[in-house]
Design a protein around this nucleic acid. Structure first.
Lengths: 101, 101
DNA sequence: TCAATTAGTCAAATTTTTATGACTATCTAC
DNA sequence: GTAGATAGTCATAAAAATTTGACTAATTGA
């Protein structure tokens, strides 16, 4: 008998804040703004990260439709994550968040 | 040998996102936008919350200088938390975050 | 066939966050 | 001086997030 409505959220900002929470998501998005991101590359770029956490973050960002996963049939099989349209709409929001400091 | 710089952060948005993370902080701020917040009142307003979590959130928001704590010498001693100037600067940021949805 | 590269998954351990319940402290009114 | 209201603290427990290390799977090149 729970979750009757899609979003019983009393705080509209909470939804996005929760989607961006997590140790690696903000950095992944920031990188994705400038270039498509790839798994092993991210692992090296994100100091102190690990496979599991990066994999989970990428999967969630994809589920949230902020990133789009693309398989690139190349020599050794590449997978790219790029900002979706929804993800691109995040760019000005990030700018406002950054401006706060 | 750590924390040499004030902010080695590779992602500028991360600082604020981290400060706003936590189960109750966004809601507390949202309420504080419209009225000064008080401990026991918050406890009742925030369904499912608890003393410890609310106390911690308030203390951190105060340390982050987003809320200002004021002791009000009234009949049974009141303590109010209001948005600081820095906290008020958060209002448009929240608006942008909300608009994203 | 064997090794390397890419992109992961899985179970378990660790760490961090959040919740519970008992307790403290100040003030006021009776 | 006792009871009720306000605003917490403290130790512990439970839950959630993150990390570790071993393992899987597809493709390519030697």
């Amino acid at each position: 008998m729970e979750n009757h409505s899609i979003d019983e959220n009393k705080c509209p900002a909470e939804t996005l804040l929760k989607q961006l929470s997590g140790k690696w998501k903000p950095q992944i998005i920031r990188i994705a703004v400038t270039e498509p991101v790839r798994f092993n590359t991210l692992l090296r770029q994100l100091e102190g990260s690990n496979k599991q956490s990066v994999a989970t973050a990428l999967k969630e960002l994809e589920e949230q439709q902020l990133l789009t996963k693309t398989v690139i049939k190349l020599k050794p099989l590449h997978i790219e994550y790029t900002l979706s349209e929804k993800g691109k709409a995040l760019i000005p929001v990030f700018r406002h968040i950054e401006d706060f400091s």
